[in-house]
């Protein structure tokens, strides 16, 4: 994975890795501390630009990009490229669909 030179505004990824996300809140709990703390913060903010994240973390945008790349690849974060600047958002659902037999669900409908 290549990253822009130090100081350059990094270009966001165009899309998340296929099939990696969305993730659940339980998955979030299993993340390592730095990644989990960032996603927690993104959940509260409901999304942030790379510059905002860099300010929050007190670190360089290039390092933030590396962290975000990993989170995007893992399916925890998506990027909204229609915003300018691009906005990184948490990619979470409440739960994965249950695998209870259809007959049971139909009985409740």
């Amino acid at each position: 994975m290549s990253h822009p030179a130090h100081g350059d505004p990094p270009a966001p990824r165009q899309q998340q890795s296929a099939g990696a996300g969305p993730k659940t809140m339980t998955d979030l709990l299993l993340l390592a501390d730095p990644e989990r703390t960032l996603v927690n913060w993104l959940v509260r903010q409901r999304g942030a630009s790379i510059a905002e994240i860099a300010v929050h973390l007190g670190t360089e945008p290039t390092l933030v990009q590396a962290l975000l790349d990993d989170l995007i690849a893992a399916g925890f974060v998506t990027v909204d490229l229609t915003s300018d600047p691009a906005v990184f958002k948490p990619n979470l659902i409440s739960r994965k669909p249950r695998t209870v037999p259809d007959q049971l669900w139909k009985a409740l409908d």
Partner: peptide, 23 residues
Amino acid sequence: KAGEIAKILREGYDVGLLNDGFH
């Protein structure tokens, strides 16, 4: 409504939507 409770349990929902709704 039992069917509506079941639907949420079955299909889940977008956490971001709930968060947006709060805001």
